[in-house]
Design a binder for these strands. Structure first.
Lengths: 344, 344
DNA sequence: TTGAAAGCGCTAACAC
DNA sequence: GTGTTAGCGCTTTCAA
């Protein structure tokens, strides 16, 4: 075979030998320069860089990956929705990955996806990623995949075996607890919870935090209402909750559901916050501008992404080192106008 | 060098020769099976597949890319925000890409990013992607990159040269026009426009559609107010608009701004829709549940992603064929309660 | 500080 | 239908 048709173009892409020839050095020296290896004189480095520039040379990552066994890329498995949390986290992950010199492969899975997480992870492994990130996972039971690269999981136990596992983005329970305590501190006898789908770990964490807050206070624990993160499901739940005069405070597991809930309450003639207080979770873009402005918990997605990836890359580049210590992100409750003292 | 340490694991990954040996065939035959090439007997295919299964074999994509010159991967350049539009489009792109057998590399750029689109495209090219997708681009003037793979651009002219360019996701102007016409048809004398940032092409398209609707009707064109897509900027704009009694209808370039706008109007004592009608754009998740439920334009992101990628992959796999015909997506105006006849 | 040689795991071309 | 041979463009090892 002659050189492949060259990525659809007419002229073949320059290779490192071409650069070497032009710079009057060996191919290996070009490689050294592009890998920031030591033992290259400043003069030679300059000549190589100039030659590369002139030729428009770019390192061929497939060849590099084949030779080195590393791709310098990371794979993300994200739940395939455009939900605020996963979407925002993904943006943070991408930025940090790029800062750290890693490319990012993304695979979405959807709830009900037959291949599920296993399929997504398998496809990433086939792409040769050096590490895998599982964002906002759901419980699919045991995932039948043997992963041989380090894995970063955001806020969940790991459903499969991998050589190195790091976690980040915990603390959802503490945040939920703070939200619930805020309501309790206002004087509400108890707080109802509009939970996320049971299979999502983050939904479970928020539920646990709510439960802990009630228990610590000795408050009665009302039955949990489960939504699907959507405003529509919040609305449906709200219609039921509105009919119960005992309900004076609700902690919703995300802002979308909180907004649907508020609408249902309002339509039923129960004023927010005068009759019922509502706290959301996420602090979505419009949270401060809906009616009433929503009290909610802001998640530090960027910080969480940064910490998580730092640990993951550490595990990749130092296979035998100890894991870095994890730290819980700070709780950031944003109090606005959807919460107040209970009606007299 | 011996075999690379094997992706961090202890046991080296099996190669196609290992599979071949176990199945009692040549290495090339294994390659044939995994590429769905013809001329492999059903019996041999079975044996190969069984052996591969048993060994846990997975094709090494770096080696395949190096040998074939193709990576079967696509790169997306997305504006690095978690804005509804780009985030939703990205999810659609990923799903379709996977259906078509392509992996996805994602690079975000942010407004004000020094490297900008050029840097993002360069990094993708270095990863050897077979095609590039530019999602929701902004005007950065001429981008100094020579791209040698087909490019798909969503709703914008292309700021650099590439061998094959396909576009999709047009029609924003028609959608904006429909939104404006809806307001005009209700009897409003004219319609104000809360635009997106000038540099975003989609903002320009929506503005053009608004302008066209006014012109067609012979309506006076009031000065444009520019926001930055955020609810906060909508709120700021709303305070100014609220002070002007002439304003009875506003078309906002996205829902977030519309929600901020409505809040400002309401706080200023101007009721929506009784005094002022507002139309948004996007149909975000909570649009139907805010107060009042928002009249808006729903964008068919999935359909747009599907059509765009179909054309891109066609261009990649059939370098010399004619481009597929583009089609404008249908206009989907969702009328809710934020629009009404002007006050008497 | 630099270079020569070998080989990563696969696909392409062609022979059988 | 199947096998053989020669690279793809790098990194690695080892020698100078």
């Amino acid at each position: 075979m002659t050189r492949p048709a060259g990525r659809g173009g007419s002229s073949a892409a320059p290779r490192s030998v071409d650069v070497a020839r032009l710079a009057g050095v060996s191919q290996k020296t070009v490689s050294r320069v592009f890998n920031d290896e030591p033992y290259v004189s400043a003069d030679v480095r300059r000549r190589v860089l100039d030659a590369a520039e002139q030729l428009g040379y770019r390192l061929n990552s497939a060849a590099r990956a084949l030779a080195s066994g590393r791709t310098r890329s990371l794979g993300v498995v994200s739940l395939g929705t455009a939900l605020y949390g996963p979407a925002t986290l993904l943006v943070g992950i991408e930025r940090v990955a790029r800062d750290l010199g890693y490319a990012l492969h993304v695979v979405n899975t959807m709830e009900g996806d037959p291949a599920g997480i296993a399929g997504a992870v398998g496809s990433l492994l086939g792409q040769g990623v050096d590490g895998i990130i599982i964002s906002e996972p759901i419980d699919e039971g045991e995932v039948p995949v043997r992963v041989d690269v380090p894995v970063l999981v955001f806020g969940a136990p790991l459903p499969f075996t991998a050589p190195r596992v790091v976690t980040a983005g915990g603390g959802a329970d503490l945040m939920a607890r703070a939200a619930t305590e805020h309501l309790l501190a206002l004087g509400h006898v108890t707080v109802h919870h509009l939970a996320g789908p049971r299979r999502w770990y983050v939904a479970g964490d928020r539920l646990a935090g709510w439960r802990a807050a009630l228990a610590a206070r000795g408050a009665h624990e009302p039955p949990v209402v489960e939504g699907d993160w959507s405003a529509a499901s919040g609305y449906t739940a709200g219609r039921a909750l509105a009919a119960d005069p005992e309900v004076t405070a609700v902690f919703a597991a995300n802002d979308d559901m909180a907004i649907g809930l508020i609408r249902a309450l309002t339509e039923a003639g129960r004023r927010v916050p005068d009759d019922v207080s509502v706290v959301g979770f996420d602090d979505i873009a419009v949270a401060a501008y809906v009616t009433p402005p929503l009290t909610t918990v802001r998640q530090p997605f960027d910080a969480v992404a940064r910490e998580g990836l730092k640990h993951l890359v550490h595990a990749i580049e130092n296979p035998d080192s100890d894991p870095l210590p994890a730290s819980d992100p700070p709780v950031d409750l944003v109090v606005r106008d959807s919460t107040a003292r209970p009606p007299a």
